[in-house]
Simulated assay, not measured.
Amino acid sequence: MRFGFIGAGNMAQAMIGGILKAKLVSKDEIIASAATQKTLDAVKDKFGVQTTLDNQEIAKADMIFLAVKPVYCEQVLREIKDKLTKDRIIVSIAAGKTMAWLEEQLGKDTKIVRTMPNTPALVGEGITAVCPNEQVTDKELTQVCEVLESFGKAEVIKESMMDAVIAVSGSSPAYVFMFIEAMADAAVAEGMPRAQAYRFAAQSVLGSAKMVLETGKHPGELKDMVCSPAGTTIEAVRVLEQTGFRGSVMECMKACADKSRNM
């Protein structure tokens, strides 16, 4: 199977790296396009894959990843539409571009999988939501998921959940980075060197997330395990509740989902 990438930015590179690391195909079976030769040269130097400035060349691949910004999707799909055959699988990672919109651009008989990965894919810890249209067979869906799981986890969802996915995983790394930065700033204010503060804050977030995933315990139960009576942690939790921490997170995610729905 030959993989093609229209767009060769960070997310596409994370996917290419995962595919090669998992040895799903050889580097000769991957081709990527981009708007500039500079980007393509960097991708070729890093991965050794084939590159082209012509998006129509990508249409010859068996599985085609649409990895451009949403604003460029219509133009790109118009370029490749007439070059696609019925057996090609289109995998879109464009936020806000619904299955109905993609089918309108390419035709309802096109095999389309709408996905939403996130940037932790760059370190092999991403999670990707997957939504196929009716033209995609179970075998083809399994193949797509195998690719997506080469750089993290993948779960098939209903398309109606996609806006929630964008809020809870697609965009959420930004919230987590802000949280880590804020914790590190506070540690620096207490006298800790900044580089060390980032390590302590980031490792605490990493370890806490791993506890949720591996223990199966409710996050509230895990929180209670840290909160000793009259202790330091419950005092910190009291301030977070007082300042609307949970409400702020929920409101920011609602705004994110609303923006996705209206794109």
Rank of each mutant, 00 (worst) to 15 (best):
P132H: 07
N133L: 07
K139C: 04
V147E: 03
P132K: 06
L122Q: 15
I127N: 06
K139N: 13
N118E: 04
R114L: 12
V130D: 02
L148S: 01
V113T: 12
E140P: 07
P117D: 06
E146P: 02
D138V: 04
N133M: 03
T142A: 15
P132I: 09
T128L: 08
E125V: 08
A129T: 03
C131L: 08
I112V: 13
P117A: 03
G126P: 13
V113M: 09
V147R: 00
T137C: 04
L122M: 15
V136Q: 09
P117E: 02
N118P: 10
C131E: 09
E146R: 15
E134M: 00
E125S: 15
I127W: 03
D138N: 14
K139V: 07
V123H: 13
V144Y: 04
N133A: 10
V113K: 05
Q135M: 15
E146N: 14
G124R: 02
A121K: 01
C131I: 10
N118M: 06
N133V: 07
N118R: 01
V113F: 03
T137L: 09
T119F: 01
V123M: 15
D138R: 13
L122H: 04
T142M: 12
T137K: 10
Q143M: 14
V144F: 03
C145K: 14
M116L: 13
G126E: 08
E134S: 15
G124C: 09
Q143T: 11
V136Y: 08
T115L: 05
E146M: 11
Q143C: 06
T119E: 09
S150C: 13
E134K: 14
T142V: 13
T142L: 13
T119I: 11
S150D: 13
E134V: 04
T115I: 11
T137N: 06
L148T: 03
N118I: 07
E140W: 06
L122T: 12
E125F: 12
C145D: 00
A121S: 11
E125K: 13
T137P: 07
K139P: 03
K139S: 11
V113P: 00
Q135I: 09
G124D: 11
N118G: 10
S150V: 10
E140S: 14
L148N: 00
D138A: 15
P120A: 00
N118V: 06
A121L: 05
I112G: 01
N133Q: 13
E149W: 00
C131F: 05
T115R: 05
T128A: 09
P132A: 05
E146T: 15
V123L: 14
E134I: 00
P132R: 05
L122C: 13
T137Q: 10
G124Q: 07
T128N: 04
L148E: 03
T137A: 08
L122A: 14
V144S: 00
P117M: 01
L141P: 04
V147D: 02
T137H: 07
E146H: 12
G124S: 10
V147K: 00
S150A: 15
T115Q: 08
M116Y: 10
L122S: 11
E146S: 13
E140N: 11
I127G: 08
Q143F: 08
D138F: 00
V144A: 07
L141F: 00
E149S: 15
